[in-house]
């Protein structure tokens, strides 16, 4: 495995009874890449992600994340990745500060490190004025940026974002993507699923899943040429048909 490859998947398969949710998919993701993982609802995106982050055991095939085997070393993987789920996943009844501290705590950061991280996150996201307010009182866009920052509180190599921008307006989405670029600029890998096709254009490379299989994988520009399309939306429609 190339040193700059941080995710490597070969013939990964997940079956539930007779139903094959993920069907022999293979791909590689390089360090610092923004990798778009696209597909319609039910195409198998979430099942694939769950296997990569160690929540679900593969039926067949192999995969390595951050150099660890997904079937045998899920505990090692968990220490090296961040994850933001499509459901909003902070504690609404806890304050902004308490949320940061809690997640810092469960990732085993030292007290000093937690204090430092809290300060950094609050200043970077400009949340100092609401640090002691329950998260429930923040606007959705702020909550999502906070959730993203918190998913990286332990400074992981790779961060998995499962539809991070669902339900927010285009303006906030653009801001969110700026943060993603900033993170990738630090050398971290961002693995992101989305169903907004305009967002697919922002990715370095995208894969498109249809019925459990990866039907296309390349840079947005190459894909557009390959499918003779003007936008990713069109590529997606041609594939899904």
């Amino acid at each position: 495995m190339n040193t700059s490859t941080v995710i490597q998947v070969e013939n990964l398969t997940k079956r539930f009874g007779n139903f094959t949710a993920v069907d022999t998919i293979s791909f590689e993701v390089k360090k610092g890449e923004i990798f778009g993982f696209l597909g319609a609802n039910g195409a198998g995106k979430t099942t694939a992600i769950k296997m990569l982050i160690g929540l679900s055991k593969p039926t067949d095939g192999m995969g390595k994340v951050a150099g660890f085997d997904i079937a045998k070393e899920p505990e090692q993987i968990k220490k090296n990745i961040g994850y933001m789920s499509q459901k909003f996943s902070l504690y609404n009844d806890l304050t902004v500060k308490q949320n940061i501290r809690f997640f810092g705590g469960i990732y085993g950061l030292s007290k000093e490190k937690i204090r430092q991280k809290t300060h950094t996150i609050l200043t970077e996201l400009d949340l100092e004025s609401v640090a002691k307010k329950p998260v429930a009182e923040l606007p959705l866009g702020w909550k999502q940026r906070l959730a993203f920052a918190i998913s990286m509180v332990h400074e992981p190599e790779i961060v998995f974002l499962d539809e991070p921008t669902g339900g927010v307006d285009p303006n906030v989405r653009r801001q969110f993507w700026e943060t993603i670029y900033y993170v990738a600029g630090q050398g971290r890998t961002v693995f992101v699923t989305t169903h907004y096709m305009d967002e697919a254009e922002y990715c370095d490379r995208v894969s498109i899943m249809v019925d459990g299989k990866i039907e296309a994988l390349d840079t947005p520009n190459t894909l557009k040429k390959q499918f003779n399309a003007t936008s990713m939306d069109e590529v997606f429609l041609k594939l899904a048909r």
Binding site: L55, K78, Y83, S85, K87, S89, Y91, I106, S151
Partner: peptide
């Protein structure tokens, strides 16, 4: 229900 369980399970806890 809130989805926070998933986050806890992804953590090294």
């Amino acid at each position: 229900e809130l989805g926070t369980m998933e986050i806890l399970l992804v953590s090294p806890l």
